[in-house]
């Protein structure tokens, strides 16, 4: 039975992938329509996946509480908060003042704090870079980062010629494009592997 499911899921995934891909390149009826229909189905499945994901989150924390693992208290807090927020949101809707307060007074400040923490973390990581890897590339990396920070502060104060800025941007743009081309090629080949069934992240490989 498992073998049949595995073969069926592979056939369905590969044929759906080929049809969607062809729909992008061959705009002759009915391929674009088939592509749109398959994408619509995918969006519905992705919506259902959010519920499965949240269920998984609850199960992981319930398991933590049941087996009294480290951080089980935080897990309990998460499950209780999730339950009350979800019930309140379903009953009173997302526009309710208390519901909005839970977003404005809890979630946004917490994310803001993490963002502030991020700045400190990045400075700390940069300082430790020279301790971890002392090579020419690390020195150039830090020098460029420092030069960029100084430029960001000074450019509004000291007028710098536009052509000089464009000259500097040429290097960063070139480097970024080089990296992105490499990533695009990698993505293409990874997609093709999935399309050929060589990689099957949907199971049964």
């Amino acid at each position: 039975m498992r073998r049949i499911v595995s073969v069926f899921s592979a056939i369905f995934a590969i044929s759906a992938g080929i049809l969607v891909l062809l729909g992008y390149f061959v705009r002759i009826d009915p391929l674009p329509q088939v592509r749109d229909l398959l994408i619509d189905w995918t969006v519905i499945i992705a919506g259902a996946a959010v519920f499965v994901g949240i269920l998984n989150l609850i199960m992981v924390h319930m398991e933590k509480i049941r087996t009294r693992q480290k951080g089980a208290g935080y897990g309990a807090l998460l499950v209780i908060s999730l339950f009350f927020t979800a019930v309140y949101g379903v009953v009173f809707g997302p526009e309710d003042p208390l519901m909005r307060l839970s977003v404005d007074a809890v979630i946004i400040p917490v994310e803001g704090t993490l963002m502030a923490l991020l700045a400190v973390t990045l400075i700390y990581a940069s300082i430790r870079l020279l301790r971890r890897r002392v090579d020419i590339a690390s020195v150039i990396f830090l020098a460029v980062a420092l030069a960029f920070l100084i430029a960001v502060v000074l450019i509004p104060i000291i007028p710098v010629s536009n052509s000089f800025l464009q000259f500097l941007a040429m290097f960063s743009r070139g480097g970024a494009r080089g990296l992105l081309i490499g990533i695009a090629l990698g993505t293409l080949l990874t997609g093709l592997r999935v399309l050929f069934g060589a990689d099957r992240p949907y199971g049964g490989n």
């Binding site: 940069s126 870079l129 971890r132 890897r133 990296l179 990533i183 990698g186 993505t187």
Partner: peptide, 26 residues
């Protein structure tokens, strides 16, 4: 695959992976 994250990993990881090296793991 994100350029910001690559810059961060360059500073944070012992041996950073750059660009398409991400896809060479397999």
């Amino acid at each position: 695959d994100n350029l910001s994250a690559q810059a961060i990993f360059y500073a944070s990881a012992q041996d950073p992976l750059i660009g398409e090296e991400l896809f060479a793991g397999g």
